[in-house]
């Protein structure tokens, strides 16, 4: 099983000043994905989320191990190759999404799907979902969560920077809200893919 991950940057007109402190960051950038684009690997997916370089293998590996039903495949190695094409922020989240789509495309049985959501907290405590590279750089704290699709529970979390426990819970709640959207995207893209029988 191998997956390609690609993402490229899109800055969605966020230069305007926002009146509500929340409105600004709380949206997910556009998504696009293409499955089965490579012929040699068993499964492949390219995933674009508004965004490149080598990354957080370990985190992704642990997340995948948590959901893949490995016991069904004794003596099998599943290799997930992620190739980052460019980084426009929320890289780890995008990697997780790409890995999940590639696993789905390869037809690997999983306990649940998973998605990655990145939240950023800037200096005045504003919560931003799916931050761009610039927002990530300026943020006081960046939190990335992996959530499963069945119970919306946490599979993995990694954080950088300072935040309070209240903020952690807020980010988690926001990530859960955002995950709904990502899972809807998964569902719709798969529905489209298998619409012709």
């Amino acid at each position: 099983m191998e997956g390609v991950m690609r993402s490229d940057a899109k800055i969605c007109g966020e230069s305007g000043t926002e009146s509500s402190p929340r409105g600004l960051g709380c949206s997910l950038r556009h998504f696009a994905c293409e499955q089965n684009l490579l012929s040699r690997p068993d499964g492949s997916a390219s995933f674009l989320q508004g965004v490149a370089e080598k990354s957080r293998e370990w985190l992704i590996r642990n997340t995948c191990e948590a959901v893949v039903l490995g016991t069904l495949h004794p003596r099998t190695s599943i290799t997930v190759v992620l190739q980052v094409i460019s980084d426009a922020g929320s890289l780890l989240a995008c990697c997780l999404n790409a890995a999940c789509m590639a696993l789905v495309d390869a037809g690997v049985p999983m306990r649940a799907l998973f998605c990655g959501v990145t939240c950023a907290l800037d200096s005045d405590g504003t919560l931003m979902l799916d931050p761009t590279a610039k927002q990530e750089k300026e943020a006081r704290a960046v939190l990335t969560f992996a959530l499963d699709s069945v119970e919306r529970k946490l599979l993995m979390s990694t954080t950088k920077g300072l935040y309070s426990d209240a903020e952690l819970q807020q980010c988690l709640a926001a990530a859960q809200a955002a995950s709904q959207h990502v899972f809807r995207f998964y569902r719709e893209s798969l529905q489209r893919r298998y619409s012709k029988s």
């Binding site: 690609r6 993402s7 490229d8 940057a9 899109k10 969605c12 929340r22 409105g23 709380c26 949206s27 997910l28 950038r29 556009h30 998504f31 696009a32 994905c33 293409e34 499955q35 089965n36 684009l37 390219s46 674009l48 508004g50 094409i85 919560l127 979902l129 807020q170 709640a173 926001a174 809200a177 955002a178 959207h181 995207f185 719709e188 893209s189 489209r192 893919r193 619409s195 012709k196």
Partner: peptide
């Protein structure tokens, strides 16, 4: 960007525009 080069008519490809997330109850 690559997002634009994904052929939209392909059955294996899917796009979704930017979506706001309601975080008021967070």
């Amino acid at each position: 960007g690559f997002a634009e080069s994904i052929a939209n008519q392909r059955i294996t490809a899917f796009k979704m525009e930017k979506a706001p997330i309601d975080t008021s109850d967070v």
